[in-house]
Design a protein around this nucleic acid. Structure first.
Length: 286
RNA sequence: GGAGGAAUAGCGAAGUGGUCAAACGCGGCAGACUGUAAAUCUGUUCCUUCGGGUUCCAUAGUUCGAAUCUAUGUUCCUCCA
């Protein structure tokens, strides 16, 4: 049985995953783009040893933050585990919908190396024109240069809705927006109290400028602060804001890209929510 | 007490007689997504039964026409007493 615990940042996915893992004697596999990195603990709200409660956790804390780990890598790693532990119950937890989809659905990334063509001199309009020459159905927006470039580098441009490769149950955790934003704001404050600034400072002092540190929420903002571009307070407000925006994007992805069954989290009695989810799993098992 | 300045949509801020339901930014809401996804990008944001309706501190004016001009009032800021 494969379970996927999804939802926006801060809802309580980690806690739910451990509860369910204990109940179903499952292993837990991370599907969060940032929790894969070593040492990025506080800012990514990574599970602590204590929180793991003895449950086996995989794909957490194993990539050097200097390395640019991507969906492509994740797909390989996750599928290797899926194969290795195919006789066990597996629980995926994490907020990166694309990683999950790439692992469990028939997502095919082209194996060819990136083309070495240099498009730097082309404007977005020119890039779009090239994309349309390649495929007249190309829907990428002119302003999305990153995607246009990627599209031109791609071998196979034909994309069909990928079929599921593995049967899985998608369990979404949610709460009303206001409550979620409150949780997020508070959680960021707690991260700061728990030493986020020091954690990020270590990377900054090692002069690491990688994808992980420059795009990870909580990391990029503090880098700006260390660079003297803003005050600590401004950085904190930015972390909160970016986390809120991120949560919204997560909802959009999960709502539209995966067959998620949603559960309203009861924060006064988390066990009630766990039970509700368990009941759902029991009825879906057959 | 006296002299100036300011009041614009949730917030910040343009606009200084018509083309203004009002640029732009933020925030909010919604969406896209096949190798950076905690990324990148898009749409929308006074009300509406989509015919219209009500706005730019308030009231009264000037004008064919006002967010823009005048008067008075209210609130806030700076300076002089």
């Amino acid at each position: 049985m494969i379970l996927c615990i999804v939802g926006p940042t801060g809802v309580g996915k980690t806690k739910m995953s451990v509860e369910l893992a204990k109940k179903y004697d499952a292993i837990i596999i991370n599907c969060d783009a940032m929790q894969v990195y070593k040492g990025m603990n506080i800012g990514t709200a990574k599970v602590t040893e204590e929180e793991k409660e003895g449950v086996e956790h995989y794909l957490f804390d194993f990539v050097d933050p200097k390395i640019n780990y991507t969906v492509f890598d994740y797909q390989k790693d996750a599928r290797a585990l899926l194969e290795k532990y195919k006789d066990r119950n597996i629980i995926f937890v994490g907020g990166t919908g694309l990683y999950l989809k790439a692992a469990l659905f028939d997502y095919r990334f082209s194996l060819e190396e990136k083309s070495h063509r240099n498009y730097d001199h082309l404007s977005n309009e020119e890039l779009l024109k090239k994309c349309l020459e390649k495929d007249k159905n190309c829907q990428i927006h002119v302003n999305n240069r990153k995607r246009l470039l990627r599209f031109l580098e791609r071998e196979n441009t034909e994309i069909v809705e990928p079929k599921p490769l593995y049967q899985a149950l998608y369990i979404g955790l949610t709460t009303d927006r206001k409550k979620l934003y409150e949780i997020i704001d508070k959680r960021v404050e707690k991260m700061i109290q728990n030493g986020l600034v020091e954690e990020v400072r270590k990377f900054y002092d090692m002069n690491i400028h990688s994808k992980a540190l420059e795009t990870g929420i909580g990391y990029k903002e503090l880098y700006k602060y260390f660079d003297g571009l803003c005050s600590l307070d401004e950085a904190i407000v930015d972390i909160q804001k970016n986390s809120r925006h991120y949560a919204k994007r997560q909802y959009t992805f999960f709502h539209h890209q995966l067959p998620v069954q949603w559960f309203q989290v009861n924060y006064e009695d988390f066990h009630a929510t766990v039970e509700e989810v368990e009941n759902y799993i029991e009825t879906e098992k057959n």
